[in-house]
Amino acid sequence: MVDSDAQLLRALHDEHAPALWRYVVGLTRDDALAHDIVQETLLKAWKKPSVLDQSESSARAWLFTVARNMVIDDRRSARHAHEYPTEFLPETPTPDSTDALLEQWSVADALASIGLEHRTVIVHAYYGGRSVAEIARELDVPEGTVKSRLHYGLKALRLAMQEKGVTR
């Protein structure tokens, strides 16, 4: 395209694009589609240099006619017939729980590898939500023993987790 054609096309865009966009938005009620149609219309004008040689009113009429025909073609298309725009997704995304599940398996394996007395106290305290006094009553051992088993059980659990490659 010759430099003068580029200037004419730029002038055509600057002169008509805003009005053309408003016209297409009025027809479609869709800003994004209107931008696409205006862009495609101006591309067609660029590919057809005879439009640039027309008078101002003829070029404007040609642009609006092309844009209108593109809107009609879009409305008749299969895409338009089968797509329904919506503000909300039909399914709600859920966070991936794979990491949490793998962590649970790692903790369960590590718990299985420590002694029964330590495992029992840890399960009662952390999974059962019981206090030291409640655990002591249930297991019929002194509170100090429960505290000691918790301390050494957690150390053993930490070591078992590190041996499995889970570190924090």
Rank of each mutant, 00 (worst) to 15 (best):
V2M: 11
D3H: 07
D3F: 10
Q7K: 11
L9G: 12
R10L: 15
H13R: 09
D14L: 15
A17M: 10
P18R: 06
P18Y: 05
L20N: 06
L20Y: 03
W21L: 15
Y23T: 05
Y23Q: 08
V25C: 14
V25Q: 06
R29F: 00
R29M: 02
D30F: 05
D31R: 04
D31E: 13
L33S: 09
L33K: 07
A34N: 09
A34W: 01
H35D: 15
Q39S: 13
E40M: 12
T41Y: 01
L43E: 07
L43A: 14
K47Q: 10
K47D: 12
K48P: 04
P49Q: 06
P49H: 05
S50N: 13
S50D: 14
V51E: 08
V51Q: 09
V51I: 15
L52Y: 08
D53L: 14
S55H: 05
S57W: 03
S58Q: 14
L63R: 02
V66M: 06
V66P: 02
I72N: 05
I72T: 07
D73A: 15
D73W: 09
D74I: 12
D74S: 12
A78F: 09
R79G: 13
H80T: 13
A81C: 08
E83V: 15
E83M: 14
Y84M: 15
P85D: 10
T86F: 12
L89I: 00
P90D: 06
E91F: 09
T92K: 09
P93I: 04
P95F: 00
D96I: 00
S97N: 04
D99P: 01
L101H: 00
L101N: 00
V107K: 02
D109P: 03
A110Y: 03
L111M: 10
L111N: 05
A112I: 01
A112D: 12
A112W: 02
G115F: 02
H118N: 05
H118D: 09
H118G: 11
H118M: 12
T120N: 03
T120Q: 11
T120Y: 00
T120P: 05
V121M: 02
I122L: 15
V123W: 01
H124F: 11
Y126L: 12
G128C: 09
G128D: 05
G129N: 09
S131R: 05
S131V: 04
V132P: 04
A133I: 06
A133E: 15
E134L: 08
I135T: 03
L139I: 09
D140W: 02
D140S: 14
V141F: 01
P142G: 08
E143H: 06
G144E: 12
S148I: 03
S148N: 10
S148K: 04
R149V: 03
H151C: 13
Y152H: 13
G153I: 10
G153Y: 01
K155S: 07
K155F: 07
R158Y: 01
R158W: 00
L159T: 08
A160D: 01
A160Y: 02
M161D: 00
M161S: 02
E163T: 14
K164N: 07
V166M: 03
T167W: 01
